[in-house]
């Protein structure tokens, strides 16, 4: 038998820091998917045992809501997006937020999306929000509102290509 020569082409690896986003034990999250290439955002919440990483798997599944929403909005498969980013915001470690009874985290999710809708025109990049959310009575709760504000501030601070306009906007969030 002759020897078989394999030529291995080494690609640059794709490094993806997971940090702790696979941890969903006593932990719920608000998360925001962002693409600068297609200028869209998708807001969600989860109490998945495997965190936003586990939820991401469901979202990108062939019948996942992110995949379906993207297809509806852009007429394209989500596979065409090359710069998808996932921002995860851990909610306080309390039953209020990670229980099956989801009104508290749903209220945060709603307020984040609503504020984004209001503010998006003032951001340097005009994103489209493609997620769907539901409101409930807890949206007037001060703790929930503060949490939503903090999430918006952190999101804007960490968006790709922030500029001075975005920084000034952060100062106006109360």
């Amino acid at each position: 038998m002759g020897s078989c020569h394999l030529i291995l082409v080494l690609m640059k690896p794709i490094e993806t820091p997971f940090s702790t986003i696979f941890i969903g034990f006593e932990q719920a999250y608000i998360y925001v998917w962002v693409s600068l290439e297609y200028k869209f955002m998708y807001v969600g919440m989860t109490n998945s045992r495997v965190g936003t990483l586990g939820r991401a798997n469901q979202h990108l599944d062939m019948r996942g809501t992110l995949r379906e929403r993207f297809l509806m909005e852009f007429g394209l498969d989500i596979d065409t997006v090359s710069d998808l980013r996932l921002y995860s915001f851990p909610l306080p470690k309390s039953y209020l937020f990670f229980s099956v009874e989801s009104t508290y985290r749903e209220a945060v999710e709603y307020l984040v999306q609503k504020q984004l809708l209001e503010m998006i025109s003032q951001l340097s990049v005009k994103y489209s929000i493609i997620s769907r959310v539901r409101s409930n009575e807890r949206t007037r709760n001060s703790r929930i509102r503060n949490l939503a504000n903090e999430i918006i501030i952190q999101l804007i601070k960490n968006l790709p290509q922030p500029n001075e306009t975005d920084q000034r906007l952060i100062g106006r969030i109360s």
Binding site: M72, Y110, Q113, K114, E118, I129, R132, V133
Partner: peptide, 14 residues
Amino acid sequence: SDEAFNSISDFIQE
């Protein structure tokens, strides 16, 4: 349009 429907629907839900 879907975009208008979704934005208005989400905004006014509360």
